[in-house]
């Protein structure tokens, strides 16, 4: 099956919830992960189209979670 480049819109990021539960700010997470606040904001607002494994691992380590906690795929 060919990859549809537009299906990325269905991926939902739950960074907001995870930050709230851990009482963390986006700036603090950016500082810990080593990614700019602007890039994390893109991720948080579901505007990212791809995530580097290194970024994903760093966020999961920082928030003590798994990729499945961070993302979900909306049903059509």
């Amino acid at each position: 099956m060919a990859v549809d480049p537009d299906v990325g819109d269905r991926v939902r990021c739950h960074l907001d919830d995870l930050l709230e539960r851990r009482d963390l700010t986006l700036a603090a997470l950016a500082d810990e992960v080593g990614v700019t606040v602007a890039n994390l904001s893109v991720l948080k607002n579901d505007r990212a189209r791809a995530v580097r494994f290194s970024t994903l691992v760093a966020i999961c380590d920082a928030l003590d979670c798994q990729p499945g906690d961070l993302f979900s795929v909306a049903t059509t």
């Binding site: 990212a48 791809a50 580097r52």
Partner: peptide
Amino acid sequence: ESDLSGLV
């Protein structure tokens, strides 16, 4: 460029 746009 299109592949890399939106890469975090």
